[in-house]
């Protein structure tokens, strides 16, 4: 599991940290990967998460956390290269392929990821999932959007407002 770029001044084997999900599952992961989270980065820089302590994440369950870490581990090497300006086209294409496949998931998992990415402040993951939901919305009517996102059926008043909106802004519905 040793990453070639264990960088950032750490010598020898990559430093590991332990994260604890809301349902008390422990995940051991390289500090470089966990540091993609702005929230965790500070704790890790302060030396937290090592040894038997672990960092508790009461807002993230184990299923979501394992998915989040899958993303972080994949993206950590590129992030360590400062956003990978010198990454090869092959590397970038591979990350893109990974990202596309990564968000090809159940809506419930997607929504959990949105919250986790937000709470943990993982910028790349936040944009990835937000873009996925935005793609689900674009080209749809308000009613279709409500159905897609699982909102309850509109009340008669809301339905009337939707119709009025469509009349007023017809060009936006073309």
């Amino acid at each position: 599991m040793a990453a070639p770029e264990s960088g950032d001044g750490n010598n020898g084997a990559a430093r590991m940290v332990t994260l604890i999900s809301s349902d008390n599952t422990r995940f051991e992961v390289e500090a470089a990967a966990a540091s993609l989270s702005q929230t965790l980065q500070l704790t890790i820089l302060d030396g937290g998460g090592g040894g038997g302590d672990g960092i508790p994440l009461p807002n993230v369950d184990s299923a979501t956390l394992s998915k989040v870490l899958e993303y972080c581990i994949k993206h950590a090497p590129a992030a360590a290269n400062g956003g990978a300006p010198n990454a090869t086209a092959v590397d970038r294409a591979e990350l893109e392929r990974f990202d596309n496949e990564f968000v090809n998931i159940d809506q419930s998992v997607l929504y959990s990821l949105i919250m986790a990415a937000h709470n943990l402040e993982i910028e790349g993951l936040q944009s990835l999932v937000a873009k996925k939901v935005a793609d689900m919305i674009k080209g749809k009517s308000p009613m279709e959007i409500r159905r897609t996102l699982g909102f309850p059926d509109p009340t008669p008043e809301e339905q009337a407002e939707m119709n009025a909106h469509m009349l007023e802004y017809g060009w936006a519905y073309e």
Binding site: S108, I114, V133, A134, G139, S141, L149, F151
Partner: peptide, 25 residues
Amino acid sequence: GPVLPENHVVSEILVRLSAKALLRC
């Protein structure tokens, strides 16, 4: 089914839409 959480992440999603799609939203 699953329901999109209604909080600040909604803005992060909607900000990525074109003006037309945003108006429909």
